[in-house]
Amino acid sequence: MTVLGGYLGAGKTSLLNHLLRHNAGRRLAVIVNDFGSINIDVALVESQEGDTFSLANGCICCTLGDDLAMTMTALLKRTAPPEQIIIEASGVADPVRIAHYGTMPGYRLDAIVVLADAETVRQRSQDRYIGATVHHQLLGAELIVMNKVDLVSPATCQAVRQWLGIVAPGARIVEAVCGAIPLALLLDLSLDRMAVTTDVVGDRLVDHRSSYETWSFAKDGSLDGARLRALVEQLPEGILRGKGILTLSDAPTTRTIFQLVGRRWSLKQGEPWDDALPSSQVVLIGLPGSIDAAAFEQALQ
């Protein structure tokens, strides 16, 4: 599960629209506060059941209902349960509290993403009523999407980025226009789909390949667990997301799943290899300059 937070007007809806249009082949469930400005393309809607829309691309979109926990539990009971859910937190909600729902049985917290409107976030953070709420939301983020960077000057953009770095020291920061960031950053995709490509935003083509770097690594057989942990702990700040299906020397018969979002990472036991040939595969996505392929490879060999 991914939590999408941020104050009103930060661009959560644009990002969700982006996600529903380009779902990267994943069966997504998007839980929104309301359908307010979500543009559900009528042509794509296969069926509607109460407040739940099923789309032709396999995604569903529903409102919160009586209670988030009950809505999430009901999703798991569907005949084709979603592969990942994205929850739109309300404009004043604490995304970290919403993330707790991702620890319910059947779920795994993937990422806490908070949007910040590059134009207004600093002003909002000073607001008498909601200033503290805005600060708190940013502080809880693993990934901050600094949105609407096309509406500010490069100098302002730089200043806002610096400011975000101070108020949310634990978060990784990326920039976006209309909430269009690579799906590989937002979703837990399979390794072969973790590529940063292009997006159409409005009538423009955005090539993300100039804004992000990807590093892929694959080898037969196992990796040294201690070396891997040492590498991950020393990864540069610009590394945003990582995933791996690995064989570790200390657990050679089962897969070990590596997940990284921002500063948080985990190694969890996966399925046994059984008859399959044990191998190790890792993909990392980062900001330009964050990837030192030679050094990473050397660290693992």
Partner: peptide, 11 residues
């Protein structure tokens, strides 16, 4: 400490 807003002022 202070408490929580349940709705955004603009909304």
């Amino acid at each position: 400490t202070n408490g929580l807003w349940y709705i955004a002022p603009e909304r």
